[in-house]
């Protein structure tokens, strides 16, 4: 029997509202706003209020999946990354770098997004980079 709240930062956008994850016996059951936090000051948007729902969702991906003959199979990170690198390389050499587009995520940190744009510009060689928080 255990109930506590763990304060964390909302994973969804760049605002950085704090929220409390309600945990009962190790299971995340809900979200409370962080009333004493200077960013959100006790408010959340719909995404923050539901930030708990994906954590233990059964549809959540836990390993990379590779599609083979129309079916997805579980794969190791090494294998998956190798495949992605191969394919990106062949697309680039066949159709040119601008045949590749890169979509970044608001759920990543600033640094991760920086790396991603660097990767697309310097490694792949395209300016086709976009981000969902740019809407």
């Amino acid at each position: 029997m255990d109930y506590s709240n763990t304060q964390t930062i909302c994973p969804f956008c760049g605002c950085g509202c704090a929220l409390n994850l309600e945990v009962v016996d190790g299971e995340i059951v809900g979200v409370l706003p962080a009333n004493d936090h200077p960013v959100g000051r006790g408010s959340l948007c719909i995404k923050g209020w539901n930030a708990h729902s994906f954590v233990q969702h059964e549809d959540r991906l836990k390993t990379p999946l590779i599609r083979e003959d129309g079916d997805l199979r579980e794969a190791s990170w090494e294998e998956a990354l190798e495949l992605v690198a191969d394919k990106l390389g062949s697309i680039k050499s066949e159709h040119g770098p601008d045949a590749v587009g890169v979509l970044a995520s608001a759920k990543c940190t600033n640094e991760e997004n920086y790396l991603l744009q660097k990767f697309s510009r310097a490694v792949i060689g395209t300016n086709n980079v976009d981000h969902c928080a740019r809407l």
Binding site: D2, Y3, Q7, N20, L32, N35, D36
Partner: peptide, 23 residues
């Protein structure tokens, strides 16, 4: 980390118990 509701049980540090803000 901040302040939030919790379930205090025997042996827990009640000096962490506070009364603000409201939840």
């Amino acid at each position: 980390q901040g302040t939030a509701p919790t379930l205090f049980q025997e042996g827990d540090d009640v000096s962490q118990l506070v009364l603000e803000p409201r939840y």
